[in-house]
Nucleic acid binder design. Structure first.
Lengths: 224, 224
DNA sequence: TAGATTGTTAATCGATTAACAATC
DNA sequence: TAGATTGTTAATCGATTAACAATC
C-alpha cells in the first residue's frame, strides 16, 4: 500500500471516514461521491479526494466510491486487518468500563488479557478476558507478542508501569492516565486519551459562546 | 480578555500548557522562558509566544513567564474560573468511572447531579453526587442552570436524549457515545470523546511502524 | 455518447517558524 | 548596564481548496 509521508490531520480523519462509511453501509447505501460524503461530514470534496489519494485510487470516474470497498480499504489502512493484540493494565473503573463497553474486536484489536494488583479479581475473568496478577506481567510479555498496552492504572503507578512495559518490548501505549507519557527521547508510540483536555476545550467554547452572547446583549441594550 | 478568532489548533494546545504549568508549579519552578517551555513540550518558542499572544501579554522581556501567573491566565482563558455546572446523563460503566475517577472540580466544573433509568440507583448518591430518575431530567433543566451535559448513555438512547437536552436549552454536550452528534444545522457545542477514533489512530501508527521495520529488514536481507 | 466524477496539478489560504526591535 | 527574552512583524512552510484533463 502507498503510504508516503501522511500528515497527522489526514490520519485523524480516517476513523471518521470509517465510521461514516460503516453507517452508510448499514443504511444500505452502496455508492457515494466525494461531494455527497463531504456534505455529510462537513468537508470539501477536494479534501476527501486528496486524503484518499495519499493511499491509492479507490474511486471510479463518473461513479464515485463503492461504500463497502472504500470502507474495507480504510479499515486496512488503519491496520484493522492485522489482528493486533492488546493487554489491559489496570482493571479499575476505567479499565473495567473498557472491558465492559468497548468492543476491541470491532476495531480489529484482540484484547488478550488484563493485569491488576487486586487479589479479589486476580484469576477471574470478565467477558472472556482473564485477569492476571501484575507479577505475571513481565513473564507474559516475554512469552507473548503484544502490540498495544492499554494503560489504565492510577496515576501513581503510571511511570513505573510504563518503564516496565517499554523495557520489555512494548512499542505502543494507549494512555488513559492523565499524565503526559510522550517523552521526546523515547520511540514508543503513545496515544493519549486525556479527558481533562477534552473537557477544557469544551469549557473554552462554552465560555466563548457566553462572552459572545453577553456582548450581543450589551450592544442591544445600548441601542434601545 | 482579548479573544479574536483563535484557531482550533491553539485552543487544543491550551490544556497541555495548563497541565505542564501545573506540574512545573508543583515541582517548585517559579519562572520559565518560552524556550524552556518549548523544550519540555516539543514545541518551538515562537509557537508558544504566538499562542499566548492570541489572548494578551503574559510575559516579561528578559525574564520569561511567571509559572503560576501564566497558569492562572490560561485557566481563566479556558473558563475554569466561571463555575460552569454539569450534569451526567447515564450512570453505566463509563458514567460511573467518570463520577469515581474524574475530578470535575479540578477543572472548574461542578457536577451537580446524575440521571439514570435504573431503579436500583435512583435516589442514591455517589461521592456526594445525587442520582435522579431520567423522568426528572426535564423538570430539572427547567429549574436549574446547566452549562454542560455529559452524555454517557448507551448508544440506543443517545439520539432521543440529545433531542431532549437541546430542546430544553442545553448548549454544550460532552459526548462519550460512539455516535457523531455534531449536526451541521444545530448550534449545540459538541465535544466528542471517541475511544475508537483514538485506538484506530494508534493502530495506524503501529501498522506504519511495522511496515517500516519490515522494509528495513527486507533491505538488510537483500544486502547480505 | 453525454454527464458525472475521479485523481492530480496549481492556487490559495492559514499556521508555523524565523527574525528583530523593544524593553525588562 | 549588558544579557535575556518578550511580543510582533515578516518569511516560510504545509494544508486546504479550486480547477481541470482523464475517463468511466
Amino acid at each position: 500500500m502507498k503510504r508516503g509521508k501522511v500528515s497527522n490531520n489526514v490520519i485523524r480523519r480516517l476513523p471518521r471516514y470509517l465510521r461514516k462509511l460503516d453507517s452508510l453501509a448499514a443504511a444500505g447505501v452502496s455508492r457515494i461521491s466525494s461531494f455527497e460524503l463531504g456534505q455529510q461530514l462537513g468537508l470539501t470534496p477536494s479534501q476527501i479526494r486528496q486524503d484518499f489519494s495519499c493511499f491509492g485510487e479507490f474511486g471510479q470516474q463518473g461513479y464515485g466510491y463503492n461504500v463497502t470497498a472504500l470502507r474495507d480499504q480504510i479499515a486496512s489502512i488503519l491496520g484493522m486487518d492485522r489482528g493486533f493484540s492488546a493487554i489491559l493494565i489496570g482493571v479499575g473503573n476505567i479499565g473495567h468500563a473498557l472491558m465492559d463497553n468497548f468492543c476491541f474486536s470491532d476495531w480489529g484489536v484482540h484484547l488478550a488479557c488484563a493485569f491488576d494488583i487486586k487479589p479479589a479479581i486476580i484469576g477471574t475473568s470478565f467477558k472472556g478476558v482473564p485477569i492476571h496478577s501484575m507479577d505475571d506481567l513481565v513473564p507474559y510479555l516475554r512469552e507473548n507478542p503484544v502490540d498495544i498496552a492499554v494503560l489504565a492504572v492510577p496515576k501513581e503507578a503510571a511511570i513505573p508501569v510504563t518503564e516496565t512495559l517499554t523495557a520489555n518490548g512494548i512499542e505502543a501505549i494507549w494512555n488513559f492516565t492523565n499524565l503526559e507519557l510522550t517523552e521526546p527521547n523515547s520511540s514508543t508510540i503513545v496515544e493519549n486519551v486525556h479527558f481533562s483536555d477534552s473537557l477544557l476545550s469544551l469549557s473554552y467554547f462554552v465560555a466563548e459562546r457566553k462572552d459572545e452572547n453577553a456582548a450581543k446583549a450589551a450592544k442591544a441594550g445600548k441601542q434601545s
